[in-house]
Computed example of a mutant assay.
Amino acid sequence: MPNPPIIATRLWLESVIIGHTLCPFAKRELERGSIHFCTEADTDPETCLHQLIGECVRLDNDSNIATTLIIYSHGFSDFYAYLDFLALAEALLAAQGYEGIYQLASFHPDYCFAQAAADDAANYTNRSPYPMLHLLRESDIEQAVSSHPDPDGIPERNIRHTRQLGLNQMQALLAACYRQKP
């Protein structure tokens, strides 16, 4: 059965993240089929934290999965509540002994960087169709970064690129991910 949050997220990954090279490492993993997409419909933070640890265990046990996108299809629509949950998730990873093994990247439909205006197109480097956590192996990050000619320049390049595209174009790109039919 089609899963609309996964369909929208995959389209976002393909058209925004890979299509605009916001993450120069994502295309390889998507083509290899090593990205695990999962959804969580529960809105209870404790349930969502249990799922996060379950995904860590999945990565522990399956080396064919490079990274996991946990998509919160109904929870954390408020960006500030999401940030509170993100802080809990990071603390839980450390408490469970996963610090240095896994890392979280955060994406949200209303993502706004500190000191950035809400209408800054650069926020779209971390805006996604649904709130989500991106769970990555730190060893894979180190390997990917070591083979990139300018890893420190990636964020600056993304900010320049999204601002050149402009707010209207970035809004349209994200909105198109919701309009696709399974």
Rank of each mutant, 00 (worst) to 15 (best):
Q143D: 06
A94P: 01
V145N: 01
S106M: 07
H148L: 06
G100L: 08
E156W: 00
D110Q: 14
Y130H: 14
V145K: 01
I101C: 09
P109T: 14
I159N: 02
P155D: 04
A121I: 12
P131V: 05
Y130D: 07
P155T: 05
P151C: 02
G100P: 12
Y124A: 07
S147Y: 00
D119E: 13
A95Y: 03
R127Q: 09
D110F: 07
N158M: 05
R160H: 14
A105M: 10
I154R: 01
I141Y: 02
A94S: 11
L136I: 13
D120R: 03
L136C: 03
C112L: 05
H108Y: 04
C112N: 12
H148R: 03
A118T: 15
E138C: 12
H148F: 08
Q115P: 01
S146V: 03
N158T: 07
G153R: 02
E142V: 11
G100Q: 05
P149C: 02
D152M: 03
P155N: 00
A116V: 09
Y98N: 09
R137A: 07
L104F: 08
M132L: 15
H148N: 03
S147V: 13
A116F: 12
R160V: 14
I154M: 01
S146M: 03
F107T: 12
Y102S: 10
P131W: 00
I159K: 06
P109C: 11
A122K: 01
F113T: 15
D119L: 04
N158V: 05
H161K: 14
A95D: 15
I141M: 08
S128W: 04
V145G: 01
Y98L: 11
E142A: 14
R127V: 14
A114G: 12
Y130R: 10
R160C: 09
H161P: 01
L135D: 04
Y111G: 14
D150F: 01
L136F: 06
A144V: 02
Y124W: 03
I141D: 03
Q143I: 02
P149Y: 00
Y130F: 15
R157C: 01
L104A: 10
A105N: 06
I101S: 08
I154Q: 00
Y130L: 10
F107N: 05
H134N: 10
Y130I: 14
I159V: 15
E99A: 15
I141G: 01
A118H: 07
L133C: 05
A122R: 06
Q103H: 12
N126M: 08
Q143K: 11
F107C: 08
A144S: 11
S139E: 11
